[in-house]
Design a protein around this nucleic acid. Structure first.
Lengths: 290, 290
DNA sequence: AAATTTCTGTAAAATATGTTGCAAGAACGA
DNA sequence: TCGTTCTTGCAACATATTTTACAGAAATTT
């Protein structure tokens, strides 16, 4: 076969950007548990996606099919090729790469982690932590361990844009006393601590707590000992088919939290972002002359 | 459901003896490339089996279904159980929070990003990049931009455990020439560059390329200009309901890649990890005496 | 803020699908 | 061979599906 025939899934993904709101909703619904979900009647498909029947009819035409029946036939043909020929093709990962490919296994595990993490997460606690981080009266300190330093750094970079008074506590624990010195009651310390919990971090948390600092903890399902000092604790699932752990679920929560904080402080954040853009422009201009 | 549900295929086989001539013909046609052949309309199924439509209708009733639609639904359900999309269905992420809570909206978007990222990713390219990173003859350099620095750092921390000869190129571009000086043909440079592409990084990539360094690029769907120097490029989806972008999909690919490299270098990696553990222990012991 | 364009759902028309009654035909036993 | 019983397909009917037309809503542009 010379012409690489594109699957409907690929078509949906490629054209996703050019789809309208209702159509995207439909595309997502179709891709959820693809391709079986597309084999029901047009009415059922529409109901599952919470859109009207005509939306389905229109979208399949947009994808290049004459009508819904033709679309379904294509879907069936695809399925037939996939089932009767389980190993052969390798063109599209999502539909044809072997189940055992590490991408598949890893993605499976990560999704599982995300689901469990979100399932256990208390939205009220989440909102509480966001409110605390959005409170401009409180200074925010962020610290991470050997592995989680990257997550801490990520959060720092983004929070720093959203509001003022955010500090990253560096890895070198010798400098930590300087930071503790500045902490005052009501300030917030965000701690990342996942297994192989680090003793230094526990000590830091203890010191901070003594000064009346509120601690937000990101940890794994087994909970870092820091939790006894924390006001909010988020347990993220981290297990994957690998010799070490995954940070994806944690990053998801961190990103969502940043988005939430940014929402709450939007009037300030938008100004800061604008100003930041200007500063970048000036830096660039500056460089040109060097 | 506790009772072991018999598949339609089983039912057909069990009841085969009690079926009539035309019905057996139909049953054979259905079992031939099962279950896809049963997903077409009753008319099509009848034609494929060279029997009349009523024969089909009667047989499905004989099998215990109320009518043809019910029979088809059972087939679809069976298929669903058999094929499950790696990025499974999202029913409710944060079950205790409303659908519109940012946790749910964000999770939706992130899943969508992962799905699209994985859908567009070529497994061969992925494997190729892993092989390159696992090749101990090549030194590996990793660089990230303002936002992606955290990802670069994360990859560095993990790759450093898996193999030797891994360097992190720091943010301060003034020091970059020192690193370029050490790069030799065949080395690998992993570049993270997502929108608001950074000019300095482009220059670095160009310099590296000139020295015969192979470049692996992680970028967004719009592709950083670095791609013209890259041998492997991974486009990750980054859009979320927020003022800036998500790194979750990128992290997923990075983590999977780390796991894959670790697999390939396992004989070396396991030794290194063991040694690392010992070093940690000794450091801890050391501290106790201070 | 008004106007234009685009999108989306309701409702009705067109079409295909699924079901049932009936008569012709095949199979089987006497 | 005949008669009985069971099977099968045709055709009409009922039902569900798919499509089209249209108007209100939403988004976008001017």
């Amino acid at each position: 076969m010379t012409a690489p025939k594109t699957t409907i899934a690929e078509k949906l993904q490629t054209k996703f950007d050019s789809l309208t709101r209702a159509e995207r909703q439909l595309a997502n619904s179709l891709l959820d548990n693809y391709p079986v979900s597309g084999l029901a009647s047009i009415t059922t498909v529409a109901q599952n996606a919470d859109v009207s029947t005509p939306t389905v009819a229109r979208m399949v035409q947009k994808l290049g099919f004459k009508g819904y029946p033709e679309f379904q036939r294509a879907l069936r043909d695809e399925l037939e090729a996939r089932i009767s020929n389980p190993i052969a093709k390798h063109d599209n990962w999502a539909t044809t790469a072997p189940e055992t490919h590490i991408l598949n296994r890893f993605a499976d595990a990560v999704i599982q982690n995300m689901r469990q993490t979100l399932g256990q997460l208390d939205p009220d606690e989440f909102d509480g932590a966001c409110a605390m981080l959005a409170d401009k009266e409180r200074c925010v300190y962020i610290v991470g361990g050997r592995i989680t330093r990257a997550l801490a750094d990520y959060m720092f970079t983004h929070l720093q844009v959203a509001r003022e008074g955010v500090s990253m506590i560096p890895s070198n624990s010798n400098t930590w006393p300087h930071y503790v010195l500045d902490m005052k009651a009501g300030d917030v310390l965000v701690v990342f601590d996942i297994r192989r919990y680090e003793h230094d971090i526990l000590r830091l948390a203890e010191l901070a707590k003594e000064r009346g600092v509120e601690i937000i903890l990101f940890t794994d399902q087994w909970s870092s000992p820091v939790s006894k000092f924390a006001i909010y604790r988020f347990n993220c699932r981290i297990e994957v088919p690998s010799a070490w752990d995954s940070s994806t679920a944690t990053l998801l929560i961190v990103e969502t939290m940043i988005a939430c904080v940014q929402d709450r402080t939007w009037n300030i954040t938008s100004d800061r972002m604008e100003e930041l853009e200007k500063l970048f422009d000036r830096t660039r201009l500056f460089r040109k002359f060097i």
